[in-house]
Write a protein that binds this DNA or RNA. Structure first.
Length: 542
RNA sequence: GCACCCGUAGCUCAACUGGAUAGAGCGUUUGACUACGGAUCAAAAGGUUGAGGGUUCGAAUCCUUCCGGGUGUACCA
């Protein structure tokens, strides 16, 4: 529908000089009395033309070459909106398209041939994933799905650091628990990892090696085993919510392959860095930033900026057209330095999209639960999945805009999991499966020969909603707004349930019944495609 | 102090990116099948969009000043 209108306006711009180069903004009005599509074009032109908007609207409408088989009515409303009403018979045509394309319906090839990388989760292996990581994980994976849906070839990447202080502390935490199990008296420092999973890893080491590791340093077997076990755990958790990474990128490899020293060298050559107080500084003030930042400390150790810049440099070197980073809001101060560094090297940083999501606040009985991996008072993502199931977890994190803080009430999640909107969507899908089974038993087939019989309000509303799917998916994907897909599907499901209570299939005239079956199938396909992008199951029965 | 995000119905959140009467779910109240799945549908109540000022045909949305919450603000990652 929208495509038709855009085309219509383009053709009209020949007649009206002032329409040249204008692409009208076409909206679906909130109020159905305002038509199926609406544009504010005339109002935007008032200033330029210094004329009454309604007068301009009138002139535009007269110039439009409208096909009555497509559009049944065009009118001027309010201060100067132009409203379009589509011909009900034309609207039914969407069912054909959907049934023809099935699981490909709504895809776009706009970005075909382009390569994208989405980096997300990227939690260091110091403990199990928490509910907080869940939002990052689910959102990142959904973004990747959306990009694939509009044509990108997408790599999912997990960046981690298994060196540094955190990991030494982790190794030592395991070592101490190991000694403890062997009967040594130990002091367990407060800043060490308190979680029970540390004890489990220590126990495994006792089982496998007995007391042979007593003289082993914390950073040897202890750290290595902890890292391996924790990663196994993380991968396992992620796969439960259908997340699988193509790459795990180890920060350490940047040192091993010489990327770090290479980068330092480049900064030096290009005169982008300097030495001061024994440290190496990056000249960011020259790029308009507030202050220069240290990239190598006086101790000779790099700060996080250097490997981060080197890492992102590899993304450019690997030839990605779109580079997406999913971070929690605690990173909001760090990435600008990294971008500035890359920009100074001449990379096109507009290819990088940094998506910052706000934190998840966990509420238990109305109280905010402060979580920390070290203190082990967190709720793991695994526990949450156990409690409510993978689909509810995925849906919950996709329901909200990432810009807003998310309150997660544990009690509510547990007790009301049956009321979660995800079931509403899945129920619509399952219900259609059931209807199709039942109609088959009544010797009714799907037929698209008489779609023009679909004229009731409920049918027309449903059809128009189906028309919006492709555009919705493209827009949401380009703008990384997975929550809008969720809203769209909820609205579609609601329109379907309404249709279903008003319009019977079995017992009505055969031609109409078979057209309605076609409509049901179309709705089912669209729901399934939407659920698939969100990473959810589309069940045949519940 | 400074930077970024947020403040919308009792609660959790939307709002087509500046559009027409600000919408959903939960909760509350009231209805609907001898029915293809009641995990459904229909209806009611619920709002000074944190507050003030500005920009314009038009503001929850943009600008500005406050108020409140979150996250940062290192030669930690």
């Amino acid at each position: 529908m929208k495509v038709y209108l855009t085309e219509l306006f383009r053709n009209t711009s020949e007649k009206l000089e002032y329409l040249k180069g204008m692409t009208p903004i076409l909206n679906v009005p909130n109020n159905p009395e305002h038509g199926d599509f609406s544009t504010n074009l005339a109002m935007l032109l008032t200033k330029q033309l210094k004329r009454n908007p309604r007068e301009i609207a009138k002139e535009i409408i007269e110039a439009l070459d409208v096909d009555p088989n497509v559009i049944s009515k065009v009118e001027i409303a309010g201060p100067g909106f132009i409203n379009f009403y589509f011909n009900p018979v034309f609207v039914t045509g969407i069912v054909n398209d959907i049934i023809k394309e099935k699981s490909n319906y709504g895809r776009s090839e706009k970005y075909k041939g382009k390569k994208a990388i989405v980096e997300f989760v990227s939690a260091n292996p110091t403990g199990p994933l928490t509910v907080g990581h869940g939002r990052n994980a689910v959102f990142g994976d959904t973004v990747a799905n959306m990009l694939e849906w509009i044509g990108y070839s997408v790599d999912r990447e997990y960046y981690f650091n298994n060196a540094g202080r955190q990991m030494r502390v982790l190794g030592n935490s395991v070592r101490l628990r190991y000694m403890e199990i062997l009967g040594e008296k130990i002091e367990f420092p407060e800043d060490h990892y308190q979680g029970d999973y540390i004890k489990d890893i220590a126990k495994k080491l006792v089982d496998d090696y007995g007391n042979a590791l007593i003289d082993e340093p914390a950073e040897g077997k202890f750290k290595d085993t902890a890292e391996r076990e924790i990663f196994k755990d993380i991968e396992n958790t992620l796969s439960r919510i259908k997340i699988n990474f193509k790459n795990y990128f180890n920060e350490n490899s940047l040192y091993e392959t010489g990327k770090i020293s290479e980068l330092l060298e480049t900064f030096k050559e290009k005169d982008l860095s300097y030495e001061k107080d024994n440290a190496t500084w990056l000249k960011l003030t020259e790029l308009g930033n507030e202050q220069d930042k240290v990239i190598v400390k006086s101790t000779g150790e790099p700060t996080y900026r250097l490997p981060d810049i080197a890492y992102h440099r590899t993304k450019f070197e690997r030839g990605y057209d779109l580079i997406v980073d999913i971070f929690g809001s605690d990173h909001n101060a760090t990435y600008p330095d990294v971008l500035a560094g890359l920009k100074s090297l001449g990379y096109d940083v507009s290819k990088i999209k940094v998506l910052i999501h706000q934190f998840v606040t966990i509420l238990d009985k109305g109280e905010v639960v402060k979580m920390s991996t070290r203190k082990a008072n967190f709720i793991t993502l695994d526990e949450l999945i156990d409690e409510v199931g993978p689909d509810v977890v995925r849906y919950f994190f996709n329901m909200r805009s990432i810009a807003s803080h998310l309150n997660f009430d544990l009690e509510l999640a547990k007790t009301q999991s049956d009321e979660n909107p995800v079931f509403y969507l899945q129920y619509a899908h399952a219900r259609i499966s059931s209807i199709l089974k039942m109609t088959k038993e009544n010797d009714l087939e799907c037929s698209t020969d008489n779609l023009n019989l679909l004229t009731t309000l409920e049918e027309q509303n449903l059809l128009k909603k189906l028309y919006q799917f492709s555009g919705e998916m493209l827009y949401d994907s380009e703008n990384f707004e997975s929550h809008s897909i969720a809203s769209y599907l909820e609205e579609l499901a609601a329109l379907f349930h309404r249709f279903y209570t008003q319009c019977r299939i079995i017992g009505t005239e055969k031609k109409l019944a078979e057209a309605r079956i076609a409509l049901c199938i179309a709705v089912q396909i669209v729901i399934k495609n939407g659920l698939t992008v969100l990473g959810l199951e589309a069940p045949e029965r519940m």
